[in-house]
Write a protein that binds this DNA or RNA. Structure first.
Length: 107
DNA sequence: AAGGTGACCGGCC
DNA sequence: TGGCCGGCCACCT
């Protein structure tokens, strides 16, 4: 575990199972920096260069697709989520808690 | 070297 | 839920 901060975030993000979503805060917590959720978002910004990162499965704690704005189109993120069985309405995940995946538990 | 910025979170109203 | 504010830490200029 001597990876960079970014790589740590990627490791977590990469382990998000299909049909599941998690929040930046959860990832931050898993990293041991619960209050550094912003860093997670920042790291995700760099994840644009990586392909293995399912950034569409990472949303903010309200289940809002806060990062959809950073994807290619505007509905790509939503499409990907719906493709995995996650319903998204008005840029928000339906039954967010139901699809929530806690990285801390899995790790 | 210092300051600005960011795909956030939690508390409060 | 929504708005405002403080905190947090790595990266960029």
């Amino acid at each position: 575990m001597e990876a960079n901060f970014f790589e740590r975030v990627y490791q977590i993000a990469r382990q998000i199972p299909e049909g599941k979503v998690t929040s930046y805060g959860a990832i931050a917590k898993a990293l041991g920096a619960a209050r550094s959720a912003r860093m997670v978002g920042w790291a995700m910004n760099a994840s644009h260069n990586i392909e293995d990162i399912p950034a569409h499965r990472v949303v903010n704690r309200k289940g809002l697709l806060s990062g959809k704005h950073h994807f290619d189109g505007t509905n790509l993120m939503q499409q990907l989520l719906e493709n995995e069985g996650i319903k998204v309405v008005n840029n928000q995940i339906v039954d967010f808690e139901k699809h929530f995946w806690n990285p801390v538990v899995d790790l």
